[in-house]
Design a protein around this nucleic acid. Structure first.
Length: 813
RNA sequence: GCGGAUGUGGUGAAAUUGGUAUACACGCCAGACUUAGGAUCUGGUGCUUUACGGCGUGGAGGUUCGAGUCCUCUCAUCCGCACCA
């Protein structure tokens, strides 16, 4: 019978499901592995990126299961989010209906890939049972002051009609729809991720060597820790008066306290309270007020593009050391959200300050030696023009100045982070409702835990205009959980990244407990950290930072025990490309996994995906290489007729022919390689190549025993990658014995009768010799010399180097 | 500008960590079987040279008996962040 993938794959998929073959065991004394591929958004259909992601994870899960590990390999659905609402707007379908029917379809698709997922632990994040526990966490975080509500300037996407977190703004545009982001002042809920900035940074060290260095670097940059001096500039008396004595001073932060004597002006962000006060009281020219207002309405990206712009505010401050009077400017490049929205400017030793100073003709004062006229000097050097600090190296002066400020109570050494708090409010329908109530008497009140979940109303009209929850006639009407008075329910929903921040704990929690708790601590203690996490690099900051934060926050509010990091090892898979660019519907260069499986079967799809490139690299789609993968499976399947017994035979190695010995060696080389590949390098492409080599070598001989052993081992090795055909062959040929446990490596098979050695003269390969395995060094050298006799004419061999089993190098003069 | 990577045949890629560079696969060429082949099988295939040979891992140096691998410099490409004071 010829290879018929459909038949084989159906058979095994049904069998696995019936046997519940992939459910983790309850026994916590077993050694465990938690293998997790990032869960999909139920967009409607799988794409090749999913196939790749899950083929990688499945190979690992199946490998460890075979090594007798208790394996947790779950799947679920990241199911809230905008596309469901867009579908509602476009096609009039209810988001819930759209989502769950997509899930049903994609679940079937996943099944045809033969992935070894647990079926009992599957959930969708839009399940009310999931929302219920998430709301409990949110309330607890509020009580523990990790979550707060505040009105600030936020990133607003008009296209999506919602607020975005800073991490979700890419080059000034919405991460999802690419629409340009606007600024808007509005209230919202925030998680205090900044409180964990240092821990999140420090614990990256625990992940070194286990996460890609690129991801670690990106997170570290994003957190953006810097150390320096914080101090206040006192306003001059005249300026205080001008400001109606509402301000005494303002704080600045600098990483260059060594340049303190070089300060020739200060600059405030357009949003700074002092600037606002000046504008409010019309203490600036009308034209200036108008321009500052315009800048305020620009996003950071727009301001950067616009170039530097500023205005003299007509007020002055006193330099804390020299007591000189210094002008205060407003500058568009000063960020309101960092370092108090105010800077000390040292144009001589900072390029931005220099550019600004030249533009507006502000004074320059060099305070570090080594500067050249006409530019800012940012290098090292000795301090000059710096009073008591003259002569000190500037690198040393940083600490000195901080000490000085602290001694005089003028300021203090401090640490600053670029990381901003995580805004989790979304003005959308298809998300988890934020479980709070607005009461006129009690203010902001969390819902009672026994009332959870606060579920979404089903009868909504989704038009794309406004927030459907707010437009709903009755949903937001409720009683205050505290005083019972009429109150209004919060209509914002949670950012979908909240759901994906704790799903790894939900999977670990025994489904039998899903009704009683969100996360079971003991289960989490057993299963976490995730031994291997697999997903796309696009989540390097967003999801991976949030999930790390959430882990620490859940620990601190008591929902999990001490766990530093959720994901012990991370593999970021490369993208699937077609003609050098990312597969996408809009470019029309996609391959539909369904039709691929229909034509070749899941095993071929999986084999190609893992063979064509190492998982970390980009994968270029190639139709004929898919054919090649299919051919290999067919060939493997066809060779089953060569097998003569269902046991691993014991073979008298010494009695074998050269070809037979070589075939065995190739088979065992593959076996040897497999441990490294499955546990460390994940270079499945090389393991598959080794198996192909082994099969090629087997084809060059016809010993039944060698064939039996060869296929016994090859199907064992490839089962995690092409599980259906291997299960089928294993059942037919070996009563499935080779799919349980390890196969021992026999060193004897690596002993060959003869060894081929390269012969090099002065490191340059010139010939090849074949020597008996037991040949002495003298004999080998003699043979080597004969083989390259013509290179030795008239010369002396001054050194003989024998690299065992590899080569001979003769140094001649 | 800062940070992270990557450069090997026509293509995707290997190389047990300093030891025969290009395994495996795709493609291509030739042959076999075929009415036919976009099926299957066999053989060949780094560049150059009639040949002997010469040259070959982005480039230039260096260490070494020996370098894709280690060191120094340099070029190119990709990715992330970016006025963070």
């Amino acid at each position: 019978m010829s290879y018929s993938p459909k038949e084989i794959e159906n058979k095994w998929q049904t069998k696995w499901s019936e046997q519940e073959a992939f459910e983790p065991k309850d026994d916590k004394s077993l050694k465990k592995k938690y293998i997790l591929s990032m869960f999909p958004f139920p967009s409607g259909r799988l794409h090749m990126g999913h196939v790749r992601n899950y083929s990688i994870g499945d190979a690992m899960a199946r490998y460890y299961r075979k090594q007798n590990y208790n394996v947790l390999h779950p799947i679920g659905w990241d199911a809230f989010g905008m596309p469901a609402e867009n579908a509602a707007i476009k096609h009039g379908r209810h988001p819930k209906d759209w989502t769950y029917s997509n899930i049903a379809y994609m679940r079937k698709e996943l099944k045809t890939l033969g992935l070894s997922f647990s079926e009992t632990r599957e959930f969708a994040t839009c399940d009310e049972l999931y929302t219920k526990w998430e709301q409990e966490f949110i309330i607890k975080m509020f009580e523990e002051k990790l979550l707060y509500r505040e009105s600030t300037t936020v990133n607003w996407c008009e296209e999506c009609h919602t607020v975005l977190a800073n991490e979700q703004v890419e080059e000034g545009c919405c991460w999802r729809c690419d629409n340009e982001v606007e600024l808007k002042e509005m209230p919202g809920y925030y998680l205090d991720i900044r409180k964990y900035a240092d821990e999140l940074l420090e614990d990256l060290k625990l992940l070194e060597g286990k996460w890609p260095s690129q991801v670690l670097a990106m997170q570290s940059n994003w957190i953006g820790k810097s150390q320096g001096l914080e101090f206040a500039f006192k306003l001059s008396d005249a300026s205080k008066e001008k400001l109606g004595n509402k301000f005494e001073d303002f704080e600045v932060f600098t990483t260059r306290p060594d340049t303190i004597y070089g300060v020739t002006y200060t600059a405030l962000a357009p949003e700074h309270p002092i600037v606002k006060e000046l504008m409010k009281n019309e203490l600036l020219d009308a034209e200036v007020i108008e321009k500052i207002t315009a800048i305020s309405n620009m996003t950071e990206v727009e301001r950067a593009k616009a170039g530097k712009e500023g205005f003299d505010l007509g007020i002055t401050v006193i330099h804390p050391l020299t007591n000189e009077e210094i002008p205060v400017w407003m500058a568009n490049f000063v960020l309101a959200s960092y370092g108090g929205g105010a800077v000390m400017s040292v144009p001589t030793h900072d390029e931005r300050d220099f550019e600004f100073a030249i533009q507006y003709n502000l004074p320059l004062k060099y305070v570090i030696e080594g500067a050249e006229d006409g530019q800012a000097y940012t290098g090292e050097g000795v301090l000059i023009n710096s009073g008591e600090l003259n002569g000190i190296k500037n690198t040393k002066a940083k600490a000195e100045v901080i000490k000085l400020f602290e001694a005089k109570s003028l300021g203090k050494g401090t640490t600053n982070y670029k990381l901003r708090n995580w805004g989790i409010s979304r003005q959308r329908y298809w998300g988890a409702p934020i479980p709070f109530v607005h009461c006129e008497r009690c203010g902001l009140v969390p819902e009672k835990v026994e009332n959870l979940p606060i579920a979404l109303p089903e009868d909504v009209e989704i038009t794309g205009e406004g927030n459907p929850l707010e437009n709903h006639p009755t949903w937001s009407t409720c009683a205050c959980p505290k005083c019972g008075a009429d109150a209004k329910r919060e209509t914002d929903t949670l950012d979908t990244f909240v759901q994906s921040s704790w799903y790894q704990f939900r999977y670990a929690t025994d489904p039998k407990k899903w009704n009683e708790c969100g996360i079971d601590k003991e289960d989490v203690n057993y299963w976490l950290g995730v031994d291997q996490y697999i997903g796309g690099i696009e989540h390097a900051i967003l999801h991976l930072l949030y999930a790390r934060f959430f882990t620490k926050a859940l620990r601190d509010v008591g929902f999990i025990d001490d766990l530093k990091e959720p994901f012990d090892n991370l593999l970021t898979q490369g993208m699937v490309l077609m003609d050098g660019s990312k597969m996408s519907k809009s470019k029309g260069n996609t391959i539909d996994p369904d039709s691929l499986i229909e034509k070749y079967g899941a095993d071929t799809a999986r084999l190609f995906t893992l063979f064509a490139a190492p998982p970390q690299k980009e994968l270029e789609w190639n139709d004929s290489a898919v054919e090649g993968a299919f051919r290999f499976i067919k060939k493997l399947y066809d060779r089953r007729s060569k097998v003569s017994s269902n046991e691993l035979p014991s073979i008298d190695h010494a009695s074998l022919s050269k070809e037979e010995k070589l075939a065995r060696a190739k088979v065992y080389e593959a076996l040897q390689k497999s441990v490294d590949v499955y546990e460390k390098t994940f270079a499945f492409n090389t393991l598959i190549a080794a198996c192909m080599e082994a099969l090629n070598a087997l084809d060059k001989q016809d010993n039944e025993q060698v064939w039996t052993e060869g296929l016994y081992i090859i199907t064992h090795l490839l089962e995690p990658i092409i599980p259906h055909v291997c299960a089928e062959l294993s059942e037919e040929l070996f009563a499935s014995k080779n799919l349980a446990g390890k196969i021992e490596i026999l060193d004897e098979v690596f002993v060959q009768d003869t060894i081929t050695l390269g012969v090099a003269v002065n490191g340059k390969r010139r010939a090849e010799i074949e020597v008996d395995a037991g040949a002495s060094k003298e004999d080998i050298i003699t043979m080597a010399k004969e083989s390259i006799a013509k290179w030795l004419e008239g010369k002396n061999v001054v050194k003989e180097i024998l690299v065992p089993n590899k080569m001979v190098n003769l140094v001649v003069k």
